[in-house]
Amino acid sequence: MRRWSPWLVSALALGYLFLYGPMLSLVVYSFNASRLVTVWGGFSTKWYGTLAQNEKLLNAALLSLEIAAASATGAMILGTLCAVALVRFGRFRGRFLFLAMTAAPLVMPEVITGLSLLLLFVSLQQLTGWPDGRSALTIAIAHITFATAYVSVVVQARLSQMDRSLEEAALDLGARPLKVFMTITLPLIAPSLIAGWLLAFTLSLDDLVIASFVSGPGSSTLPMVVFSSVRLGLSPEINALATILLVTVSVCVIFAGCLLAKRDPN
């Protein structure tokens, strides 16, 4: 029996055309000499030059990378703790509330998360003086909070599949729980920690809405700068930026894919 019918092959072709066509159009137009992005005016790479001199955009990109790295690390730690508590501790008091708090950010509209965090920061500042205005710090706190939920999901999946007999053996042989966790559990769940970190990093780097609510003067992230420029219309520099991002991500993903395929031939 033929399992891969011509119907399915054409569905695949159309599906990938739909997914990649618009992204390829960004790449093609980034080499357009004309400022009117979608009207072809000859081949040119000049927009990459102007992009390299756009300090506002570059500073925002740098800030975004810093915030993403910091919040991914924070979310990885908190998310792993959440996952360990939820998967390994059985029933404990407050577990339902705990579960609800780690799952709710996944279904929360970004505008509501952003608004509520901003109102929290404003009220906290009134009451305690901290945080002193909004800055990159408040953005990072916001990103840690919502990314923790995602990391927790990823790590939970791995933890619940993990073979427990190794941990049991180590405990039987008298190893302390912390030592068991560090030498056995952690190395075994490490791939999910890396996956969770990358997920949190991407979510932070990509976030416009929450950052817009909790950022302060001088802490505009890359999506915020891109958004304000896109609102005014098309800009060939944004196309050049998109191309660089697409190429970087594709190279990384393909590299990671090959690495995984090599390690795990199935």
Partner: peptide, 23 residues
């Protein structure tokens, strides 16, 4: 992997691509 890849790129820029295509 090819279906997931767009998710790792910028959401904002993927919406932006449609402005150019649809205008």
């Amino acid at each position: 992997l090819a279906v997931i890849l767009p998710f790792w790129t910028s959401f904002l820029l993927r919406v932006y691509a449609w402005i150019g295509l649809l205008k």
